[in-house]
Simulated assay, not measured.
Amino acid sequence: MSCSLAVKLLARDDLSALLLKTRSPVRPVVFTNGCFDLLHVGHVRYLAAARALGGLLVVGLNSDASVRRIKGPLRPIIGQEQRAEVLSGLACVDFVTIFDEPDPLALIETLQPDVLAKGADWDLADIIGADAVLSRGGRVERISIVPGASTSGIIDTIVERYSGR
């Protein structure tokens, strides 16, 4: 990983300390999370929209073990270090931190973002961490998803096109 990309990937405690020093009402911290396996146009548009909601975008990235618990034993396709590096290469992403828990609640409680962003395919009542952010005076934003853009769809296309060769 190049030096500039390495600066974006931080451990939870280091990121929390940095955010405490840099937090500002004019530069709200936006948080989102996900697996981001096989990064695609839907991910890029989503992350750009999330970044536009504030002054700083933090991405909580599910670890490989966490992805396996959520998506099954065949996932992720791309390992966590490479997924983190790809995310770090996006201009709209300011920081990435990897978490191993099945959901991001503990990470959200530690980082205390001003804005929690999630895809519009999530009902507000189902967004983990929403209560924690709202109780601190923050807000939760649901971002439109790109129809037809999904990692599962990409995997299905590859399997369909290349099976039986």
Results as ranks from 00 to 15, higher is better:
G148A: 09
A130L: 14
L18K: 15
G79A: 07
L38A: 01
F99I: 11
K118R: 15
G54Y: 08
G79Q: 08
R27W: 04
K21V: 04
D14W: 03
I98P: 01
A125Q: 12
V140T: 11
L57S: 04
Q82K: 10
R27E: 11
L15S: 01
S163Y: 05
Q112E: 15
I143K: 00
A65E: 13
D13C: 13
D64L: 06
S144H: 06
G79R: 13
V30Y: 08
T32P: 03
L9E: 04
A49H: 09
R161K: 15
R139P: 00
G34R: 00
R83E: 00
L39F: 12
L53F: 01
Y46R: 02
Q80G: 02
V29Y: 03
D94V: 11
L116D: 04
L9P: 00
G60V: 03
T110Y: 02
L38G: 07
A48E: 15
G55W: 14
K8I: 11
I77K: 01
D114K: 02
V96G: 01
T157L: 14
G148R: 09
L107N: 00
T97Y: 00
I155L: 13
E101I: 05
V115T: 11
R142M: 05
A11F: 12
G138W: 08
A49D: 07
E109Y: 05
D94K: 06
S144Q: 10
A50C: 15
V7W: 06
M1R: 10
G79C: 06
L19S: 09
V146E: 10
R75Q: 12
G55A: 14
I127M: 07
V159A: 13
K8W: 08
S152V: 02
L9C: 11
T157H: 11
G72I: 13
L10S: 08
G54W: 04
G72Y: 09
V44K: 00
D100K: 03
K21Y: 04
E85N: 14
K8N: 03
L105Y: 10
R68L: 10
G148K: 10
G79S: 09
V93A: 06
L124N: 12
A17G: 07
A125E: 14
A132R: 12
A132F: 05
V140A: 09
E81W: 00
I145N: 08
L74W: 11
Q80L: 01
P28C: 09
L90V: 11
R161L: 12
D13S: 13
L74N: 14
R161G: 14
I70E: 06
T151A: 04
L105H: 11
D123I: 00
L90N: 05
A84G: 03
S135Q: 15
L18A: 06
S88K: 00
L111D: 01
G60C: 08
A52S: 15
V29D: 05
F36Y: 12
R23S: 09
R51A: 13
I70Y: 08
